[in-house]
C-alpha cells in the first residue's frame, strides 16, 4: 500500500490536520468560526543540545519546513 501524501514527505498527523482543516473551512459561517478555534495551534519549541536550550521557533513553521526537507530526501 502506498500513499500519495507519504511520498510528499507528510506525516500521518500532518495529513490528518490538513484534512481536518479542509472540513472546517467548508462549514457554514456560524459553526465554522467555532470549529476553526479548535484547529488553532500556537506553540513554540526549542531544541536542546548538551544541556543548552536552542532558539525558540514557531512549531508550525518548523514542522512544515522539516517535512519539505524530508520530501526532498525521499525523491
Amino acid at each position: 500500500m502506498s500513499f500519495a501524501w507519504k511520498a510528499a514527505g507528510i506525516t500521518y498527523n500532518r495529513y490528518l490536520a490538513i484534512a481536518a482543516r479542509v472540513v472546517r473551512r467548508s462549514l457554514k459561517e456560524g459553526p465554522r468560526l467555532q470549529a476553526e478555534r479548535r484547529g488553532e495551534m500556537d506553540l513554540r519549541f526549542a531544541k536542546w543540545q548538551n544541556g543548552k536550550q536552542g532558539e525558540n521557533k514557531n512549531l508550525g513553521d518548523a514542522n512544515a519546513s522539516a517535512m519539505a526537507e524530508h520530501a526532498a530526501e525521499t525523491k
Binding site: 506525516t11 498527523n13 490528518l16 490536520a17 479548535r38 484547529g39 500556537d42 519549541f45 526549542a46 518548523a62
Partner: peptide, 26 residues
C-alpha cells in the same frame, strides 16, 4: 532534547497534540 512553550492558555486542541507528536517523530 526538546521543549515546547505556549501551552496552557486555553484548552489544548488536537492540533497542538498533532504538532508535538510530529516534532517527536522527527
Amino acid at each position: 532534547v526538546l521543549s515546547f512553550a505556549g501551552v496552557g492558555k486555553d484548552v489544548p486542541t488536537f492540533a497542538d497534540a498533532q504538532a508535538i507528536a510530529d516534532q517527536i517523530c522527527l
